[in-house]
């Protein structure tokens, strides 16, 4: 499934071998740093770091290219800021981008692009199941039980969504096709068209959810405790990476 947004690319690089908790933690630290930087030059450092890490991951360009579908969003964010930021107009017309807008637009867009890219680096070097296992372990010490869930339930929900969401999209596509082939008039009335699609999809998804719940129950699911096919073990290297990331982040933030 290459080219899928945030898809995993199998490999044996150092990045692939790191504990998911370390990677999640590092991405979180990087995100904070990226948000804190207010100059394009600073962001350039993160861009270079990203290029370095991508080479290290050995996953080539497929990780980067997978964010292509988000391109319109990037452009949109950039344009919105360019046009709607107060400042000196670029052209002598009523509706013109401003200098300040261009600057802010590039800053915000580059930040956003970098966040997405680092996110995709995490997902392209870590199996979904391992990410879920990592998140579960991170959440486990939290007193979630007080709000009535367990870390295991959250992790299971996430891994269920990994199949369920794309399947639901596929299912909606099937229903739409069958409605079109029966001569439904999507083009003429988008509102009733959407409704006549939404209702069967909603019904179908509720039935599916019931079925999945039953299948899970028959396979002994209970949210209290479970183990994982992918056992997580912190190695010396993981600890090292973690300390470096933490050190650098603290240094940048407080120095």
């Amino acid at each position: 499934m290459e080219g899928f947004l945030f898809s995993y690319v199998a490999g044996k690089s150092i990045l692939h071998g790191l504990d998911p908790r370390v990677k999640i933690f590092s991405v979180m630290c990087l995100s904070i740093l990226i948000f804190k930087s207010s100059a394009l030059v600073d962001l350039l450092v993160f861009a270079l770091l990203f290029v370095g890490l991508t080479i290290l991951a050995g996953s080539g360009l497929s990780g980067i290219m997978s964010v292509r579908p988000l391109l319109p969003i990037f452009v949109f964010i950039f344009l919105i800021h360019s046009f709607f930021t107060e400042g000196a107009a670029l052209f002598n017309s009523q509706f013109s981008p401003t200098y300040e807008g261009l600057l802010k637009g590039s800053l915000v867009t580059v930040r956003f692009v970098l966040l997405i890219l680092y996110g995709s680096l995490l997902t392209s070097t870590t199996r979904p199941a391992v990410i879920t296992a990592g998140i579960e372990r991170i959440l486990r010490p939290l007193p979630l039980r007080r709000v009535g869930v367990t870390s295991f339930e959250i992790a299971t929900m996430m891994s269920l969504a990994l199949y369920f969401v794309p399947h639901l999209l596929w299912y909606a596509g099937q229903i739409k096709d069958s409605q079109l082939s029966r001569g439904s008039k999507y083009r003429r009335n988008p509102i009733s068209g959407t409704l006549s699609l939404a209702i069967p999809v909603l019904k179908g998804s509720m039935r599916m959810a019931d079925d999945v719940a039953m299948a899970m129950e028959s396979r002994c699911y209970q949210g209290n405790f479970r183990t994982s096919l992918f056992e997580l073990k912190m190695t010396a290297r993981d600890v090292l990476v973690c300390s470096v990331v933490l050190g650098v982040t603290a240094l940048v933030l407080y120095a």
């Binding site: 199996r127 979904p128 199941a129 299971t156 891994s159 269920l160 990994l162 199949y163 399947h167 299912y171 039935r207 599916m208 079925d211 999945v212 299948a215 899970m216 396979r219 096919l229």
Partner: peptide, 11 residues
């Protein structure tokens, strides 16, 4: 389609 609980076969 409605008894799948993982993203991949082994999961």
């Amino acid at each position: 389609h409605s008894q799948a609980v993982g993203a991949t076969v082994e999961e």
